[in-house]
């Protein structure tokens, strides 16, 4: 779990040690980079992430994530793939003792830059969680939540946004007649697609998906995958999955992580057929898991 309850004053010195200027500057860049000739949306530079001074969760991550493609993060549990994903919209800020070194650039802008507004970042970078988390409100209210908190109050405009988001999330047909029903009445798969639609309503550029189908049955999973397939035309999608088949099915690029390190990033086809790294091959072929 990411909940840490270490003492308040306890590890301060250690954290300070980690945050010395030297650690920031030099890190022999291990070029686990992506793809030439593609527009890069997300870029990390020597990113290190700590839950607290004793829990070094991400080590020297350097990755480029291309525009309008699906990038999948795979790796054994606890390898840091979810952590990395949550770095992209700074969800990790919620953890009280966590800190990082290095940089994350989105469209070339450092998201940790002073003056960055979290709300804008998160509007730009939408997120779908592992377990569907519809709010205990009506379906319509759920989808309209994002636009509303971002300042859109015009009913017609909201209706339009909700409809288009639900259509993109492939839920419109199922729910258009019961928009005012509680979102909690939907089935598990529908709830998750609602969450996707909810993220889309904000008109994000990037959508982060943290094992979006892990709690669903195969049919619902298939539906979600279809939706993703559809979405990548318009959005950059980063998906964390523990299901290698899923990664192989839906992603264009795959990044393999282990023990907080990024081992290899490449075209999905290449990773699954001819990985460069021995570790990747071992993981793909199921020698460990």
């Amino acid at each position: 779990m990411i909940e840490t309850e270490s003492g308040v004053f306890l590890e301060k010195t250690k954290k300070d040690e980690i945050l010395t200027p030297e650690t920031k500057i030099d890190k022999s860049v291990k070029p686990v980079l992506a793809m030439s000739n593609e527009k890069i949306v997300i870029e990390t530079k020597t990113l290190d992430f700590y839950y607290n001074a004793d829990a070094h969760a991400l080590k020297n991550i350097n990755i480029h994530i291309p525009d309008k493609k699906v990038t999948a993060f795979i790796g054994p549990s606890g390898c840091g793939k979810s952590t990395l994903l949550r770095c992209f919209n700074r969800m990790n800020d919620l953890i009280s003792d966590a800190f990082h070194t290095g940089e994350i650039l989105i469209n070339g802008v450092d998201i940790y830059k002073e003056g960055t507004r979290l709300e804008d970042l998160r509007k730009q970078v939408g997120m779908v969680f592992q377990k569907s988390n519809p709010f205990p409100m009506s379906i319509w209210e759920n989808v309209a939540f994002g636009p509303k908190v971002n300042g859109i109050n015009d009913k017609d405009e909201l209706n339009e946004i909700v409809e288009s988001a639900l259509k993109q999330g492939d839920l419109w047909r199922e729910v258009k007649d019961r928009m005012q029903n509680s979102a909690l009445d939907l089935s598990g798969g529908q709830q998750q697609r609602l969450c996707i639609a909810r993220a889309l309503a904000n008109k994000p550029e990037i959508i982060l998906m943290d094992e979006p189908a892990s709690a669903l049955d195969p049919i619902s999973t298939g539906k979600i995958e279809e939706t993703i397939e559809e979405l990548k035309k318009n959005y950059t999608i980063v998906i964390v999955t523990h299901n290698m088949q899923q990664a192989a099915r839906i992603s264009d690029y795959t990044a393999f992580m282990m023990l907080g390190e990024l081992i290899e990033v490449d075209l999905t086809k290449k990773i699954f057929t001819n990985p460069t790294q021995k570790l990747t091959e071992d993981y793909i072929t199921g020698r460990f898991g």
Binding site: K123, P147, N150
Partner: peptide, 17 residues
């Protein structure tokens, strides 16, 4: 971003305040 015009500055300021 395409939605820029829909989040006017003063709304942001209000929310932040």
């Amino acid at each position: 971003m395409s939605t820029e015009h829909k989040t006017p500055k003063d709304f942001r300021r209000k929310v932040e305040r």
